[in-house]
Design a protein around this nucleic acid. Structure first.
Lengths: 125, 125
DNA sequence: CTTGCCTCTGACATGGATGTGAGGTTTTAG
DNA sequence: CTAAAACCTCACATCCATGTCAGAGGCAAG
């Protein structure tokens, strides 16, 4: 499949796909004329990359983790495995942060609602 | 307290504090000579702002929520309350995403560990 | 062959929070 | 009084994923 189709099927812009390649996160076969061709599995790979970006990882960080994902049995994955565990911890911490933040929002909303009700009682009176 | 102390106590750069003010998220009393002065409570406010930034909200979004937080009983908080509920939903969705991503990382790590063990058996043999 | 769409490279633009530096005033400590 | 440290404003720089545009080539259908 060519880049346009991969873009459509993964919901990522053509521009971004080229960028991922530039960052070493995605590879492609080139036709004699230089056009990129992708395998079916690349759709899922791109979705995975998107997921990591959404989780706040940078291209560089993702690049460091990929050896672990791509060839999980090579010895270079020892370092990648550590790196991955480290990112997992960061992610967990971030999730905890967000849960806390959500609680704060809930508290603020509850307070606001109480205030609003109080105001409405005044209006009703 | 002056801006340097607030920065130190909240762990945010002086630059950022001025930026928050510029974005309407933080206010300060000015001394006759123009220096900013803050109240004790502003430390916590800045921490809260940081939290919202970390949760991925933009200055503009935070600004829209603040009426709700600052004066929970005014009528302008009706819109802010909706906005807030909306952001809360986004946040929940994001958290769910992150949990899923963490699961994927866990799966990748498990696979990598299996591969590594297999390799080590080879070495041992 | 031509028209239209897709792709290529390369480069510049964007947005948002923050860093950084210049040039000048205020505050504080000795 | 003086020197150091903190503050002021203004403006330009940075990072990073993307958008966007220009100019050129590739490829299928009429």
């Amino acid at each position: 499949m060519r880049i346009g189709e991969l873009a459509r099927r993964s919901g990522v812009s053509v521009r971004s796909l080229r960028y991922y390649e530039e960052q070493g996160l995605l590879t492609s076969e080139r036709s004699p004329s230089g056009q990129r061709h992708y395998a079916e599995g690349d759709v899922e790979r791109v979705l995975f990359l998107q997921r990591l970006y959404t989780a706040g990882l940078s291209s560089r960080t993702i690049h460091e983790l990929l050896p672990c994902v791509d060839s999980p049995s090579l010895e270079n994955s020892r370092a990648a495995l550590e790196r991955m565990a480290q990112e997992r911890e960061k992610l967990s911490a971030h999730i905890a942060e967000l849960l806390h933040t959500r609680d704060l929002l809930d508290a603020a909303m509850a307070a606001a609602r109480r205030g609003k009700e109080c105001l409405e009682e005044h209006e009703a009176a």
